[in-house]
Design a protein around this nucleic acid. Sequence first.
DNA 1: TACATTTGCAACCGAACGGCTTCATAATAC
DNA 2: GTATTATGAAGCCGTTCGGTTGCAAATGTA
Lengths: 106, 106
Amino acid sequence: MRRDIFQAIADPTRRAILVLVAVQAMTPNAIAEHFDIRRQSISKHLRILSECDLLVPRQEGREIFYELKIDKMKEIDAWLDQFRKIMEDSFKQLDDVLFTLKNKNK
Amino acid sequence: MRRDIFQAIADPTRRAILVLVAVQAMTPNAIAEHFDIRRQSISKHLRILSECDLLVPRQEGREIFYELKIDKMKEIDAWLDQFRKIMEDSFKQLDDVLFTLKNKNK
DNA sequence: TACATTTGCAACCGAACGGCTTCATAATAC
DNA sequence: GTATTATGAAGCCGTTCGGTTGCAAATGTA
């Protein structure tokens, strides 16, 4: 079973949950009210998001508030960073790269 | 069939392809050499990435060079942006939010 | 023309996904 | 003590995913 942030944010429902919870920590029931799917399915999503450390549960009596762990979001940003770097370098040497490529694949 | 950037980058092979192609445009065969899967599977991934506008094919004779469309990456960045804003606001009003939440869910 | 190379497409297959329903458990209310 | 509420876990089911093989089309070469 693959379980990483990228797989976690691939599902639109989970992305919506993240946005909701970013504003304020919420209980599964409260979250489920925003969707047309059963509470139990939301629970599944919350489990996945928690396993990826994107959410952290905080028990309060019989309620559980799920809170966003914004730090984990930075991992996505870090992945994007690698492209920013690569592209900076590539743009500088764009013509060289294209030239090399054409010769290599002649 | 769901087909958006988030679903596209959910697969680790596709993420690796994007990194490869970011350095320089490549043909399917050249890309496939970097993986332990069949060329046809790579073709499938390239199709998905192209349909999401993350890659753009450029025909050259019988070869096809797949090139990264870096602009599309910015959509992911834009999605993250929404969290940056929400979190800035939330931190300021964190105590207020928690107070409101407790009353609302009493 | 005949043949090799590069590529994409279709069909197939097992595993994972994302819903669902049902049930168990723990905390609260009566 | 009993009923209610909040939640998670287990199992089912149809669909999607990511790999495979086989084949056809288009281009380049002998």
